[in-house]
């Protein structure tokens, strides 16, 4: 059982739904769910379109370990992860 699924189930019980999930693993990698499109990719910054907002990751030597239609894993020196 996924830890995120467990957390979502717990939160749904209080009547809350989520459009995206972001997990920052110690500043070395970021797991993102709920991506709708890629806005911008570079070695220092990556931007993704979410359902109702956009996600910006700023760091050093960023690279995408995995990217599919809904999710992505970004590795590198993560400095900030922000949602606008």
């Amino acid at each position: 059982m996924s830890m995120l699924d467990e957390i979502e189930k717990l939160m749904q019980s209080v009547g809350t739904s989520y459009n995206y999930r972001i997990v920052n693993l110690g500043g070395k990698s970021v797991y993102i769910e709920g991506i709708k499109s890629v806005i911008f990719l570079s070695i220092d910054e990556m931007q993704f379109q979410l359902k109702e907002s956009s996600l910006s990751i700023i760091g050093k030597q960023l690279s995408i370990k995995y990217l599919d239609k809904n999710s992505a894993v970004i590795t590198g020196g993560i400095i900030t992860v922000g949602v606008k």
């Binding site: 499109s37 890629v38 911008f40 990719l41 570079s42 070695i43 690279s63 995408i64 370990k65 995995y66 990217l67 599919d68 239609k69």
Partner: peptide, 21 residues
């Protein structure tokens, strides 16, 4: 490259080990 990435993404191509030096 941005257009290509968006196109691939829209065509549901899964990308691995992506790096843009």
């Amino acid at each position: 490259i941005d257009n290509l990435l968006k196109t691939l993404y829209s065509k549901k191509v899964t990308l691995y080990n992506l790096c843009r030096p």
